[in-house]
Design a protein around this nucleic acid. Structure first.
Lengths: 159, 159
DNA sequence: TAGAGTAGGTTTCATGAGCGAACTGACTGC
DNA sequence: GCAGTCAGTTCGCTCATGAAACCTACTCTA
């Protein structure tokens, strides 16, 4: 059976997963953030099969997350670079990394992130854009937005 | 061939994906945040096959993200609730939702989140825990952390 | 006391996605 | 002319995914 698509779900989480929810996709994006751009470099670093890598790169390019740019004419060679849409995935990647650091890294984080502004190896925290106070699962509630379509009932968040 | 596991990668993103990277897992967790706890409710809301749902619930319970709690003895009935480890996935979910809202919701967000502290339908923003200033892909650089193991070379973030 | 309904699964089986490995084609450098 | 690099493509296998049917244990209604 074909893998079911999330694209007709009226939910932004599902739309995001439709683009980056495939096995390997987020790791390709992670490596792209680390500066990897070439097919063989992705393949070597990830240990992914070449055909799967090819599929993923094509679908990420189709989704507008990566762009394929020629860096040599003869021979014709391309590299894959994050678009702005791809760079906007940074908070997703960061949230995943921080969750992994906290719950699946007994020896401490394998990679730390230094904030250039203050020079500290720091953790990102989610705050409300409006009031600047912390925004956690228990401090919000979900309501239907302008793009809401029937069939999906937002409930109270976490009880 | 068996789907390759990410568990031996020295990377917290990979560890996170190992737990929630399967097709459907994040949507199950999203619904759990919306207050869904029962097998049949998950099944109906997601339109997922019952066997796949069963697999996912078992692996999320095994991973410690959900817990199975009896809410009735006769007949024996269980419900699935987020653990603290599961609730810690909120930033991941929020980042995905916000990315989807921005890049895949032409009619506006299907669901908005109201911050109880200020009453506004607000967006979460990632700031440095240390200095409080915004933390984006371009304002950080990756360095090896205490849990670093060879074979993985952190590079500069985004060029 | 029979029959319908509900909750939470389990089984079955066809399909297709993911896998490694080998191969291809276009080029460069020696 | 031969080795090496880069970016794929092809091949054949296996396992995960999917829908639908089935199962178990209990409750509710008549």
């Amino acid at each position: 059976m074909e893998r079911k698509s999330f694209s007709d779900m009226s939910c932004s989480v599902a739309q995001c997963l439709e683009v980056v929810g495939e096995w390997w996709s987020m790791l390709i994006i992670r490596d792209a953030f680390m500066g990897v751009t070439r097919f063989d470099d992705f393949q070597r670093r990830l240990g992914i099969s070449r055909n799967i890598l090819q599929h993923r790169l094509v679908s990420l390019v189709d989704a507008g997350v990566l762009q394929k740019v020629a860096y040599s004419e003869r021979p014709l060679r391309h590299e894959y670079r994050l678009t702005e849409k791809g760079i906007d995935l940074w908070p997703v990647l960061t949230a995943m990394r921080q969750w992994g650091d906290r719950h699946a890294a007994p020896d401490g984080p394998p990679v730390e992130v230094v904030h250039k502004d203050c020079g500290q190896a720091a953790v990102g925290r989610l705050v409300c854009e409006h009031c600047g106070r912390p925004m956690g699962a228990r401090s919000v509630r979900a309501v239907p937005g302008p793009g809401y379509r029937a069939g999906r009932t937002p409930l109270e968040a976490v009880h």
